[in-house]
């Protein structure tokens, strides 16, 4: 059983308990990261958060490059909350990379961007985003959005096992 499978076990047993889970927050704007973190703390989400500043860092983290090889310290996440417009490698490029990785492509990835352009929303879904949320301009708005998001994903959704497991023994014919 790998780390993420253990996390999923924890989620199955106690819908309200996700203490051992890791969520990746990817954003180049330090203010946005600060408020997202504060909001998650305020709404009592007890996950570990890993903050990354651009797409290249996501690739390095998920691939276990360099310092990220230590999966105790940098576990595979149960989900990714990611901005679109970032330097070096943007959110669209991460989606393309991620959805081509057999062991990682199932990680639920929610785009969290200030854009509300139909073209951005469509492209994100086309490239395999699990959903798209537009950032709020106010802190109260942000709080409400992240509350909806964490309730939906952490209390009601089933998450896939990430890593080496495969789906070949599905019971549905």
């Amino acid at each position: 059983m790998n780390g993420t499978q253990k996390q999923n076990k924890a989620l199955e047993g106690n819908p309200g308990m996700y203490r051992q889970c890791t969520i990746l927050i990817v954003d180049d704007d330090e203010n946005d990261i600060f408020f997202v973190k504060r909001a998650f703390t305020e709404i009592n989400v007890h996950c570990a958060f890993q903050m990354l500043k651009n797409g290249q860092e996501v690739v390095d983290y998920l691939s276990g490059h360099g310092a990220y090889a230590d999966r105790q310290k940098y576990p595979l996440p149960i989900m990714i909350l990611m901005d679109l417009k970032m330097p070096i490698m943007d959110g669209f490029e991460v989606l393309v990379w991620l959805r081509a990785r057999p062991g990682l492509k199932v990680i639920p990835t929610v785009v969290f961007s200030s854009s509300d352009l139909a073209a951005d929303i469509t492209r994100a879904y086309e490239l395999g985003a699990n959903s798209f949320m537009t950032k709020s301009v106010t802190y109260d708005g942000l709080l409400l959005k992240l509350q909806t998001l964490s309730q939906y994903w952490l209390e009601h959704c089933k998450h896939p096992n990430v890593g080496e497991a495969d789906s070949s023994n599905s019971a549905v014919a």
């Binding site: 492509k105 199932v106 395999g128 959903s131 959704c157 896939p160 096992n161 497991a165 019971a171």
Partner: peptide
């Protein structure tokens, strides 16, 4: 877990 994973692999937005 195989059903859950397969659903995400095949493009389900969530489960």
């Amino acid at each position: 877990p195989a059903d859950i994973r397969k659903a995400y692999e095949m493009g389900a937005n969530s489960f």
